[in-house]
Amino acid sequence: MKKNYIIAGLAIFVIIVLSPFWFNMVTTPMAAPKPELLGKAATTKKCVLDKYDMRANHMSLLDTWRDSVVRSSDRKYTAANGHSFNMSLSTGENSCLGCHEDKAKFCDSCHTYASVTPYCWECHTNPKEIQ
């Protein structure tokens, strides 16, 4: 009697735990957005990290940046490729959004797909959105 209960309980547990897979089986999953370089970024062709490093590690870099800017007041980043950048998400030409002008494409599309919600934009502003 007790054995049946346990097995039934386990079965329900497994079904619930695997629910994301069931969900994806019955719905069509969203296609991964293709990263593309737009506007200034497409022509400038220089960045703080190389392409793959950027994809994998931009969050760690940004974390290092914010500590550097706020805590050590070092605000200029000279990348391994020799180019210098302003360590800032959005202020000025030489910042992230200064080059990758389209935040929706550059930040949001992947973040939405990966279902991550960084809180950068609760404080930092996209100059385009203000105007």
Partner: peptide
């Protein structure tokens, strides 16, 4: 890896 070393400095 990479060609050089990234540095963080003051303006």
């Amino acid at each position: 890896h990479g060609t050089g070393e990234a540095v963080m400095t003051k303006d």
